[in-house]
Design a protein around this nucleic acid. Structure first.
Lengths: 184, 184
DNA sequence: GGGCAATGTCTCAGATTTGTGACATTACCC
DNA sequence: GGGTAATGTCACAAATCTGAGACATTGCCC
């Protein structure tokens, strides 16, 4: 019981995250299928890329929202959202990468961009709240903490893929680091 | 007074860091020159890539060593090395990326890999020392802190390129975050 | 201005990547 | 077994990328 289309999308996210212009052969290989099959599901590179964008936005957005609503304690909300980021793994990184690329000019008018902004709106407004209520080091800016969040999530994923330790333990470690980094 | 060869290498590092398989046209464009000129300095893609690797290793290695020797205080050594990482910017990220890629099998036998290991050997052994002497949260592992270091440096660079604040101020902020993240 | 080195323009052949058609193979349901 | 949907194999043309030759242009030193 396997979903080829989903496998291809997941593989593409994995590959494109490391190498945006990688040949589609690599994606097919990662998905353990052939380029021919890939093209049966996606007309061309652009369509595949669009599906990837949609996928990462959908997944991350849902995970963020769920995490946000999973607790009443403000700091715990942040913790859950942090774990959500790690759980989304490569998708989380890819989404962020696409919108912080050197040539990418971020604009609210673009649908992709507003989707991205929307995904992290919950996180950002909550962080703004934590800053205002003095739960977080006021020296730090919202933008810095946002990048920091992504940086530490990326570090978690890198450590995971290197299989240095169990996922649950690592997540906890990463959260310890992040929470201390932004604490008063 | 400009050094075309160096411009091309720097541009290549910038481009390849984001898109490893980007066409050489993009690199030339970034260097404000043409593909033809690029090929006058570098026989082919491989040769350019090799030059990039050599460049990042050389630059980062020198910066790390200099930072390490610029202070006697153990914690200050770490701080200086952190700043060195931020100053090396994209080069630092690129070096790390090349050796933590999904397909890249890291092996000491390879010259590139031993060069990479060598570059961060100073940092790692110093961190080991800080861990053993109880200057750093003993819950954290060396490998985790290594990835964390790279993650926060990457976040700094991302924030820099977004021009959110002056470099010096940002570096300080980033260090505050990093030092707290690993503190007891 | 003459000479010279560096670079740009135009061109092109070869290599690689891409998208698709035709048909074989496999897996599974009835 | 027959039918069918999904996938694999092979083939191929179009598009793109790559590397290099031929020659024009630019900038600079004397």
């Amino acid at each position: 019981m396997k979903d080829t289309e989903q496998d291809i999308i997941d593989s593409a996210i994995l590959i494109f995250n490391e190498d945006l212009s990688a040949p589609l052969e690599k994606v097919a290989e990662q998905a353990q299928t052939t380029r021919r099959t890939l093209h049966r599901y996606f007309k061309d590179r652009k369509e595949l890329m669009d599906s990837c964008q949609k996928e990462v936005r959908k997944t991350c957005h849902a995970a963020m929202l769920k995490a946000y609503n999973s607790s009443d304690d403000p700091m715990e909300k942040l913790e859950r959202m942090f774990y959500a980021g790690v759980d989304c793994g490569t998708k989380h990184s890819f989404l962020h990468k696409l919108h912080t690329m050197h040539d990418h000019s971020h604009q609210a008018g673009n649908e992709e961009c507003s989707g991205y902004d929307n995904t992290f709106h919950v996180w950002k407004s909550h962080l703004q709240y934590l800053l205002e209520t003095g739960k977080i080091n006021p020296v730090l800016t919202l933008d810095w903490i946002h990048h920091l969040h992504h940086g530490i999530v990326a570090a978690s994923i890198a450590t995971q893929t290197a299989r240095k330790m169990p996922d649950a333990e690592l997540k906890k470690l990463a959260w310890v680091s992040f929470s201390r980094a932004i604490s008063i």
